Simulated scan of single mutants.
Amino acid sequence: MRQPSPEVLAPPSKERLRLWLRLLKTSRSIETVLRENLREEFATTLPRFDVMAALSRFEDGLKMSQLSGVLRVSNGNVTGIVDRLAEDGFLVRVPVPGDRRASVVRLTQRGVEEFERQASAHEAWIDSMLEGFAAEEAADIGARLEQLEAKLHSGGNA
């Protein structure tokens, strides 16, 4: 990657603001491509993919509130998606013993297989979009972003 010479850099606060704007713009562009690819190749949406991805990490399933927490969205946002995925046979709701109002949501075998197909394509799309980064560069940037996220979650955001 080409880096500007130090004498043409703006003050640190301006360069950091530009970095944030570039990250946001790039993230939105990648998300747009992913949404389109999921729609075209699998007739699905990114939120449906995200729900299946979250459930794929929890073989025993998750309560709706847990699923919302993993996805960082409200229960209301997830309910409709879960309903449609259940109608399509990709997941099931299992009642929680002793709690009539609660159920655990988990992928069916069909859902696992479908998610594996989608996840494989998703990985290939991301790999193609980010192919300009060597593995070491991707790992370094990832580590730096992880440090930033940890700082923000520990209250070091201002």
Rank of each mutant, 00 (worst) to 15 (best):
R101W: 11
P97M: 07
T108N: 00
T44K: 02
R48G: 01
L67S: 01
S13L: 14
V82N: 07
F115L: 06
A143E: 14
V96N: 02
K14F: 12
Q66Y: 04
L34C: 01
W125H: 06
L24M: 09
L46W: 03
D60H: 07
D140L: 11
V105I: 13
F58S: 05
A102D: 07
R48L: 02
R72T: 00
P95C: 00
R28Y: 12
E137I: 01
M1P: 13
L148K: 11
A86W: 05
L67T: 00
Q118C: 08
A119V: 10
S128E: 09
S120K: 11
V105E: 04
A158W: 11
R106S: 07
E41W: 07
L21C: 08
M129A: 05
R16P: 01
W125Q: 03
W125C: 02
G69L: 06
R28P: 03
P11R: 14
T32K: 15
S29N: 10
D127K: 07
L24T: 06
R35M: 05
G155D: 00
P95M: 03
R144V: 04
R2C: 07
L107E: 01
M1V: 09
V78M: 05
E114F: 14
A124C: 08
A139G: 08
A10N: 08
L152D: 01
E123P: 01
R110Q: 09
F42N: 04
L62Q: 00
E137N: 09
G76N: 12
T44G: 00
I30V: 15
N75T: 02
D99I: 05
G98N: 06
E137S: 10
E59Y: 05
E146V: 01
R110A: 13
D127W: 06
V96I: 09
I81W: 02
V8L: 03
S27H: 15
V73M: 08
E146Q: 14
R117I: 09
Q3H: 15
A139P: 05
I141T: 05
S68K: 00
S5F: 13
